Simulated scan of single mutants.
Amino acid sequence: MKLGLQLGYWGAGPIPNAAELVVAAEDAGFDSVFTAESWGSDCYTPLAWWGSQTSRVRLGTAVAQLSARPPTSLAMAALTLDHLSGGRHVIGLGVSGPQVVEGWYGQPFGKPLARTREYVQVVRNVLAREAPVTNDGPHYRLPLADGDGVTGLGKALKPITHPLRADIPIWLGAEGPRNVAQTAEIADGWLAVFYTPRLAGMFDNWLDEGFARPHARRTRADFEIAANAQCVVTDDVGAALERYRPSTALYVGGMGAKEKNFHADLYRRMGYGDVVDEVSRLFLSDRKAEAVAAVPDEMVRETMLVGTRDEVRAQIGQWEAAGVTTLMVTARDVGTIRELAALV
């Protein structure tokens, strides 16, 4: 199993010691470093800035939001970073949710599966640089030929800059069965935001459906599964769970609309339906402290690796046996990075 450092997106400001963490991860033998975005910091600027201090680790976005950039713009950023890093970029994409897509980016959220498929294909066409890029699909039409304010003068273009690699890996963030199956069909890897080995069989069924499709890009043998996980080596498991309980409550109750929250849906599939209902009710009633308190220990621990060195080492083995190829950890100190590298 490989290790990746998940720096995530910023809160009120930058991660204070991020540059130190990135260098430590490379020195410790980590395979990759990832950044994310929500509706604050973007993912590409920090990745390029901190990644400039590295020479070996892969540099990935987990995730770049589809609605933040047209696919040609995403491809421009990707080919640029891939050149600057000497071929170390991994494109990680995700659709986000309707609150962010329609509320922040001002774009329609409908048909996320179709949008993702079309987006990925346009990015691949740009990177292939075999012909001027055109697309007849309904979501990202190129050239744009009609509509309010459209001149009709648009021209199909190839990128001026020759991509260093035509096959920059594309990994997709996905949580539901149809989305995961499509990821296995069209992508090079899966970014699993809330993974639990307990449900590996369910995830495998979803993935296998995608691998079995006629034009699947990969097989299980050359497909990457990168799972996010908080990893805490400690004798005080209770304190670690308290530290991450607010995050679980936020994603279940506050990171999505009441009518559509993909994180909540995944936790329902884990068997926490009643808890999700209660946490959502409290969170949406602005009773956040009560919402956090309503999250049980086992729900927090489900997607974590936590315990003594021997316990965490055993848990790493369980995740690897379940099919995870990269463990994307959210370590925020150099000591934890070095300790996890030693365990893996």
Rank of each mutant, 00 (worst) to 15 (best):
L5S: 08
L7Y: 03
G8E: 02
W10C: 01
A12Q: 12
I15C: 01
A24R: 04
F30W: 08
D31F: 07
S32P: 00
V33I: 07
T35M: 12
A36M: 02
W39S: 08
S41I: 00
A48S: 13
W49F: 12
G51V: 07
S55W: 07
V57P: 00
A62N: 00
A68C: 09
S73A: 15
A77Q: 10
L79V: 02
L79Q: 12
L93S: 00
S96A: 10
Q99Y: 03
V101H: 07
V101K: 13
T116Y: 08
L127F: 05
P132M: 06
H139N: 13
L144C: 09
D146E: 13
R165S: 14
N179Q: 12
D188I: 04
D188T: 05
T196A: 07
T196V: 10
N205D: 15
G210N: 01
A221G: 10
D222P: 03
D222A: 10
F223E: 02
F223R: 06
V237F: 01
G238Q: 08
E242A: 14
T248K: 05
T248S: 08
L250K: 01
K260Q: 13
R269M: 12
D274C: 03
E278P: 15
S280V: 04
L282N: 03
L282G: 01
D286I: 00
V295E: 00
E298M: 09
T303E: 14
T303Q: 15
L305N: 09
V306F: 04
T308Q: 01
R309L: 10
D310F: 01
W319D: 08
W319M: 05
V324K: 12
V324S: 01
V324F: 05
A342G: 08
